[in-house]
Design a protein around this nucleic acid. Structure first.
Length: 205
DNA sequence: CATGGGATTGACT
DNA sequence: GTCAATCCCATGC
């Protein structure tokens, strides 16, 4: 049996996500996200887990956290600050509330479409933040709970160019609880990482 | 039912 | 550096 004659590689399977969330967050650097004619390489992620108070799932099972506690390999999309849709990949076995927030991409497919959706031209302004990349890819709240293995949002494996990315960790952005956990992961030196960039040297704080 | 707080961004002092 | 936009939802009365 031949593989289908598609340009894109198969999406990551649900098994990929059914692992400790920190492991998945690191592994997702260099992978691809694709939706509605646009795609990018993941250059920044953050991990969230129901054992720590910055995670939405910390409060337990509610209508909002239903997706977070559900099956791994699905999208958790929620509205942030009343304005932005933020994309997460649900991780760990069903019953555990954990997810990886996709924080930044390096655009590589449909860049003109991204420019139109964003109303901006500079490549570094298109996907360099969690709210920016959902706008650039056309992802909305309706995709909450959808499968990342079958679409409409698909996450694919690392391509040859990104086989062994240099990943740096830092503290998570924009939270007020559990601020000391270094659960943010970035592709070292990449220009599409959101601000503030993690310190490359002198990781002591 | 009223309130308050965000896993952000862009515009502005 | 400051700040408002805007809305979902958890919480408390």
């Amino acid at each position: 049996m031949q593989t289908p004659a598609t340009a894109a590689p198969p999406a990551l399977s649900a098994d990929f996500y059914e692992r400790p969330v920190l492991e998945v967050a690191r592994s997702l650097i260099g992978c691809t996200v694709e939706h509605a004619g646009t795609a990018g390489v993941i250059v920044e992620t953050e991990a969230y887990h129901d054992s720590e108070p910055a995670c939405h799932a910390f409060v337990g099972l509610t209508p909002r956290t239903r997706t977070l506690f559900g099956a791994p390999g699905r999208a958790y999309v929620y509205r942030s600050y009343g304005i932005h849709a933020l994309l997460n990949a649900v991780c760990e076995p069903e019953g555990v509330g954990a997810a990886v927030l996709i924080r930044a991409l390096e655009p590589f497919v449909g860049i003109e479409t991204m420019r139109r959706r964003r109303g901006l031209t500079r490549a570094e302004d298109l996907c360099s933040g969690p709210g920016k990349l959902t706008q650039a890819l056309g992802i909305s709240l309706e995709e909450n709970g959808s499968s990342l293995t079958s679409g409409p949002i698909r996450i694919g494996p690392r391509t040859d160019v990104w086989k062994t990315p240099a990943v740096v960790s830092g503290t998570r952005i924009g939270i007020t609880k559990a601020v000391d956990l270094r659960w943010r992961f970035c592709l070292a030196g990449n220009r599409h990482v959101s601000r503030p960039r993690p310190q490359l040297s002198g990781e002591r704080s």
